[in-house]
Design a protein around this nucleic acid. Sequence first.
DNA 1: CTTTACTATGTAAAAGTTACACATTATCTG
DNA 2: CAGATAATGTGTAACTTTTACATAGTAAAG
Lengths: 245, 245
Amino acid sequence: MKKNYLEKNKPEHLIKDAKVLVEKYPKVPLTVDCVIFGFEENKLKVLVIKSDLEYYKEHYSLLGDIVKDNEELDEAAYRILKERTGMNDVFLDQVRAFSHPNRHPGGRVITVAYCSLLNINHHQLKIHDNDLNWHSLSDLAEMAFDHKEIVDGCYAWLQKRIQEHPLGFNLLPVKFSLRELQNLYEAILAVSLDRRNFRKKFASMDLLIDIDEMEQDVPHRPGKLYKFNFEKYEKSKRKWIGIDF
Amino acid sequence: MKKNYLEKNKPEHLIKDAKVLVEKYPKVPLTVDCVIFGFEENKLKVLVIKSDLEYYKEHYSLLGDIVKDNEELDEAAYRILKERTGMNDVFLDQVRAFSHPNRHPGGRVITVAYCSLLNINHHQLKIHDNDLNWHSLSDLAEMAFDHKEIVDGCYAWLQKRIQEHPLGFNLLPVKFSLRELQNLYEAILAVSLDRRNFRKKFASMDLLIDIDEMEQDVPHRPGKLYKFNFEKYEKSKRKWIGIDF
DNA sequence: CTTTACTATGTAAAAGTTACACATTATCTG
DNA sequence: CAGATAATGTGTAACTTTTACATAGTAAAG
């Protein structure tokens, strides 16, 4: 963005050729890693693959790839997600960059983490592709590189994010019961919530559409099914003001 | 983080030499830009310098520099801040990366934005250094590169952040009045708040220490002075659970 | 037809938020 | 030194939100 500090202390003059300047900049390999959360059997899962590196043989790693020349980071993230899962209609948010000099055994590589949520049952995985699989978040112990740290960072980010945005609806079928919704929140936030208060909360937000259908094939009294009112949410996104710490 | 997609479709085998792999990765110039907010005369300001590039002659730009070999991004941000302002005891948070391919006229440069808040009166600026100065946020129209976009992004981030963390105390003198505190919040959040409710809110948080001194040299009834209880805040950081969107 | 395992719902108490007005106290001015 | 000015400091009632908690209903399975 600017000449470096040593250069800066020379007598002032403007730099005429920005290209020449940038050519002198040091360069680093840059990758994107996707932390894809999914939800199944009331558990939060993360999409992982076996690492390609002998160094990390049998360790899991995230879906990642280099950023191409002239590719935006967002683009790279969507590309990777699409290449690996076939999906292209998913929220994908930049979380942050990880830059520890020794995070990659091959030398310095900086990575930018992206986070997403998707519905496991809506997306068929190419299972044989490097042992791609949904791994339960709670017993994801060791991972290749600093990927465990990245997952932890994204999980914390997700917990916060889901309290402010209805990301969770990506994890549910189009029609879902309130119980399914609550299970989702309980799994992601790792808390248990009072059912009556949970329902009241969502009822008061008025973002669920009662579609007048019931659950099928459940071994107990079926619950009502709802849809999420995406349109209304888009219109009424609140900008909150409140100081709380 | 992984071999790219074309390579991936070759028959499976593990990569023995991670170094060789990384050497093949494309590399990009990477910079850090610091968005330093300060507060003076009840206005929020940003620290800017004149751009070095003839291309952006007379435009302001952020404090930025390349990331050195084997330097962490956080380190780079703290280094830049220290080099330019002399400060090294400030919160500095990564906001996000900006990667538009044409954001720099010299070719592709990716930058990671960091955001900070500091007390203008506590830090003497090297004024002749590239016309470094505090520029009022509200009339910062054009900037070099995509720096206006970066500032806007960081400002939005800051507004949110300051509602959850007491960052604002960095902008105030050690001893401050409640009015000063309120002015700060009003300036950053761009709202006006009820004085009684504001005071009640902070009183209930119990994070202010009444130091039993009064303002001096004010042309009206002086207010009480307080200190922020950093220690107590550290102990009681709340982890909130609440769904709201 | 009884058990099981859920769904569905209401209410009272507590906590937090909002809106609002008046007395007080330094300083400044004439 | 009296009055005007420009702040500080405080309390309360209405409202909203959150929390805690218990009972009745229904489909399926045996």
